[in-house]
Design a protein around this nucleic acid. Structure first.
Lengths: 190, 190
DNA sequence: GGATGTGAAGTCGTTCACAGCT
DNA sequence: AGCTGTGAACGACTTCACATCC
């Protein structure tokens, strides 16, 4: 809406876009503060900034991809990051030379692939806060341990393996098979 | 538990494994039928079968991958499908010859990559019920239209694009950036 | 006048507690 | 005796409705 040049928006407009109740929109926003103006609505620019602040998207998050197979390569060339506040600033593998060429072809400004042993050093240098684990499942936990040791507090795990991290670290799994199960369920009952 | 040879399980055991309340487990299961035996618990084998039936996992789901870039290739060699009831039986791209070699290397029994124009014909032949869309976002909607026209009722969309399908079709998006946003939020507030 | 922010009412989901069955 | 299935009690979230402020 900001890009379309719209200045204000009401909870009713937001609600219809999100297919929820207008009161829900107001309650949810009011939970974090007073962002609206009575009798007017919400100023789009202000609301956008406020929400970004709430969600932690008012800064650039610096990330590393670990495990440069097909999935890791896909992430390295994932253009959608550019629109968001995420940036891949490092890539690691256990066998770096093999893959440099492959990735360089794909990107204008390629990210050099480094040996996993350098993660602690590089994490500090480049202020890495999030690690994307795209290794085979058998390596996921030991890689996670290295990530933790390197002081990277956020982990997004793409490997189909259950891994654990100590208190104070945040781990999220991307198991698309869960979504696939949901799809299968919906197909079975329709 | 079945693989460990356990014969029966109580709602209390299931609850502690899932970190929920025992009554929750019983209510949820009872919603779909009577699977337990009073004074005993649930027979593991029977319960497993019942749950598979409920979730639509008591059959093999035949799938096609459309768009054989990095992500599509990753899915083609995704070993975890084997454990589940999903099978990739076809792969499509707009430029098939280019990629055959790359995928063949990776798999013992490669799936041949076909031109997208053959989707309708092949969908019928091979009883394809689910399409995994891994094209660039700009192509996602037009590919989805072809999928719908081919009579494939389930779509799992990996492309970062909003697409729509007619009534009667089921669409699920795999937008891992949502999970990444959630991770960033949790990191910001801890 | 008109849309927000919010107590009150209403609805939905979770937990308790026990009857009923093995 | 023990555990399920389930009505009743409870708690949480959603929606309503209006006082409040621009």
């Amino acid at each position: 809406m900001d890009q379309s040049g719209e200045k204000v928006v009401s909870s009713a407009q937001l609600a219809s876009k999100c297919m929820v109740n207008p009161a829900q929109v107001r309650k949810d926003l009011a939970y974090f503060g007073e962002f609206g103006v009575r009798g007017v609505g919400y100023y789009v620019k202000d609301l956008l900034n406020s929400i970004k602040k709430i969600l932690g998207l008012n800064k650039e998050w610096r990330m590393a991809v670990i495990g440069i197979g097909n999935l890791g390569s896909a992430l390295l060339s994932y253009k959608d990051f550019l629109k968001q506040n995420y940036k891949i600033v490092a890539a690691f593998d256990i066998d770096p030379p093999k893959v440099i060429g492959r990735v360089s072809e794909k990107l204008g400004k390629p990210v050099e692939i480094l040996h996993i042993s350098r993660i602690k050093e590089v994490a500090k240098e480049r202020n890495i806060e999030i690690a994307l684990i795209t290794t085979p499942p058998s390596e996921a936990q030991s890689v996670a341990n290295l990530v933790v040791e390197a002081g990277i507090r956020g982990i997004l795990n793409f490997a189909p393996a259950q891994i654990t991290v100590p208190e104070g670290f945040v781990l999220k799994d991307v198991f698309f098979t869960n979504i696939l199960d949901n799809l299968a369920y919906l197909l079975s009952n329709s």
